[in-house]
Amino acid sequence: MRKLKIKRYIDNSNVSRFRFWIQIISFFIFVYGGYFFIEIASRLPIFSCPYVQGSPGGCYLIGVQHELNTTWESMLSFRGLGILTSLGIFLLFFIFLNKAWCGFVCPLGTLQDWITKLRKFLGFSFTRYDEMSFKRLKSIKYILLVLLILIPLGIRNSFFGIHVPHGMHTPFCQICPARIILPLFTGDTSQIFIDFTDTTTIIMTSLGMMIAALFLVGSFVKKRFFCFFCPMSALQYIFSKISLLRMTKDGDKCTRCGNCYRVCDVGIREIADDIISKNIVKDDCMLCVKCVEACPEDDCLKISFAGMPIFNASQEGFFKRYTGSSLTEYIKSIEPNKENENESK
């Protein structure tokens, strides 16, 4: 069966280049959009940080931390409805792009990709976690997610008689590198500080500064360093299955060549080794689609939206992307040389 012309064109296209531009555009929207009177929404599934002056929206994590800073009783009142509404808004945005929010839109993710570009420019090699560390460190994002839910609850309620000090309000924002680093892009250095109000604030703000430093160093040596620990990623994964945008794998077509694993920025092994699961979006995945680009087997990896195929792996596309020219162009370029060579023999 012949593929449709448009389908073939898309499957042969270089999505990474497209992604690069989309990331630049979304970075500008989510860091400077506010200055151009762009308002999107709060409760977005990305780090659209409200601490950035020009942010046109808000990150769902700051919203959920604020909302949960309330008592059990009021959660049962209409305040609870508010919590559900904002979860609804989050999901409304999320289901359209699934984890592609991370790979295409999130400004902090984009920033890490830029740092990777810088590293490549300087010619430093990257590092990867070995299998054990990967498995061990994987759970950190879930721990952070649970903490960022429990700590705000603990401020207004008591857990077995323990009250969390008020200085721990929005605990994740206090340690989030987006709060410190993204405002720098608008020339706002006010987030670089240690708050000496009390011990809690000293600890939290120092942690924030440390994590910001680790973020920069870490993403220089490891691709998408922070995303591996991001609680937003954990939260998204919980709802990933209901999303309209899906990545599926046809295990029968897989040769387990490992191309997809090699290009994976977060280092997901299952993408190459799992030949049973159909839905291959894992918790660390950010749907950057690099694996689909690197897959040389026709229709082995597929991106679809609401059942409609968008971007499929294809041989032709693979060779075009990885060798930079089509076959006929290549043959044309080497043929004259070879003929001369053969004649001279």
Binding site: S190, I192, F193, M210, V217
Partner: peptide, 23 residues
Amino acid sequence: MYTSMVWGLIVFLTVTIVSIAGI
């Protein structure tokens, strides 16, 4: 009166240098 950018930078730079050295 209660925040210090200098200390923030000190912490930031220390961690940066230490982690680079560590790596």
